[in-house]
Simulated scan of single mutants.
Amino acid sequence: MVDYPIRTEGLTKVYDGVKAVDSLDLSVDKGQVFGFLGPNGSGKTTTIGMMVGLIEPTAGKCFINGMDVVRNPMEVKRVTGYLPDGVGFYSGLTARQNLKYFAKLYEMKDADARISELLEYVGLGGVEKPAGTFSRGMKQRLGLAQALLNDPEVIFLDEPTNGLDPQGVIRFREIVKEQVKEGRTIFFSSHILEEVQHVCSTIGILLNGRLIALGTPDEIRRSRDRSAVRIRVKVSGAMPHLSDPRIIEASYSDGSASIKASADIRDDISRELIREGLAIRELAIEEETLEDVFLETVYGGA
């Protein structure tokens, strides 16, 4: 049986008696873009560090393409690419020279064509100034090129859109989709929920080192107890304050309201507004965003 590209068993890291990552069991399918979410300090970067072989686990194991990361570090590095958060380069070297240095570490022969291809691919073709003069976004682009340098089967991206301008973010999304079409597996950690929603089909939410939710956004929504309904209302004219006792909270503007209620009270809202002589322009359940899912799962809706 072919193993998962990424799999962990009881993966644990303890620092000074505190579990930064606590018994993580996770499997990621081939060709999947897996979004790894969690608040600052939840253990995301430590988890990735163990997955790419930079941090030794206190307990448990991580496997890349069936290979134990601790027992087979060089073999694992040959099939993985990694873009860390806050990626750094030799400041006095150009983008091309930096990639040539890393190509030597990978023992790549005749790497010039591959480097030229990647620099064009990430939007740095023709840039010859030292990397120390690069903007944060340019460093992210170079970091992505480095992560792809050895033509990896599994790619780890930690906060990859930090510092990118809107055009760079769009190009990043395109690159992720292109890499997946070529059969690669991508593990994508970010605090930018919009980016995760754009590129990831499956997400895991980490809190205090433990995986507290796993699945597609829709699966995570369905798995949670929904004790409240959010309703969007728009009318022609001034929006009155509604009187239904099942309204938990509401925010009003001139012609609209956003309501949190203990039940679906759209029919009652409609009747109340009609009694007020108002024409209803919109009355609908508000769909949860990934941000709603994240906040309610991690902070209980705070």
Rank of each mutant, 00 (worst) to 15 (best):
R275M: 09
A103R: 03
D25P: 04
S253A: 12
V196W: 01
I280C: 05
K104H: 08
T202K: 13
Y15W: 15
L149D: 07
E153S: 12
T47G: 02
V76H: 03
I6H: 08
V33S: 14
V21R: 04
Q97H: 05
G137I: 03
G43H: 01
L11D: 10
I115A: 11
R224L: 15
E159S: 14
N162M: 10
G137R: 07
Y90M: 02
D25G: 08
P245H: 01
H198R: 14
G17Y: 08
A238H: 05
G66V: 06
H241A: 12
G209M: 06
L148K: 09
Q179C: 01
K61Q: 11
V28H: 04
Q140E: 04
V196D: 03
T58S: 15
R210M: 13
T8I: 00
K44H: 07
L83R: 09
E56S: 15
R226S: 14
A20I: 05
G10A: 02
D158I: 14
G209T: 11
Y4E: 09
T94F: 13
V21M: 07
G209Q: 02
D158Y: 06
V87F: 04
K30M: 10
R221C: 01
F294M: 02
S256V: 02
N65T: 00
G41I: 12
E75S: 13
V87T: 14
D151S: 13
Y299K: 15
K129A: 04
R78A: 12
K77D: 10
N65R: 08
I248E: 06
L290I: 07
P39L: 04
R246H: 08
C200A: 13
L119H: 03
I248A: 00
G125R: 10
F172S: 06
R271F: 09
F89H: 01
